[in-house]
């Protein structure tokens, strides 16, 4: 799983570099996520490379959000592409995880 991280203040911005987040790689994604969990529990997933997400992918994002909020943090998404966004709306994920147009907006929302 290709995740590249960037620390901006106490916020970790994670660029998801895979094009696909489906049942075939969600386990790897969870492992990758566990390895970047650090002091900071505020995360932004930058999703602009991701072209396809299925229900397992949605479940995985919900899992990450739950982990972070348990630790007192939160997960925000940005750069979500249109087809993926329609899926999030279909399973009402947009009501559980905040989605922003740009990385900056997402970071700003933590302040």
């Amino acid at each position: 799983m290709e995740l590249s991280t960037e620390e901006i203040g106490d916020i970790t911005v994670v660029a998801v570099l895979n094009e696909v987040l489906d049942a075939g790689n969600t386990d790897e994604f969870k492992t990758g996520f566990a390895s970047i969990l650090n002091e900071s529990h505020k995360m932004v997933f930058e999703m602009s490379h991701v072209k396809f997400v299925d229900s397992s992918g949605c479940g995985t994002l919900l899992f990450c959000q739950k982990q972070l909020s348990k630790l007192g943090g939160n997960l925000k998404l940005c750069g979500v592409q249109e087809p993926v966004r329609s899926l999030f709306e279909l399973v009402r994920m947009d009501r559980i995880i905040d989605i922003f147009g740009s990385k900056e907006e997402a970071i700003k929302s933590f302040q």
Binding site: S55, S56, G59, L62, F63, K66, I96
Partner: peptide, 9 residues
């Protein structure tokens, strides 16, 4: 759909 479950969609 309340975010409590990660599967079943």
């Amino acid at each position: 759909f309340d975010g409590s479950r990660e599967c079943g969609f």
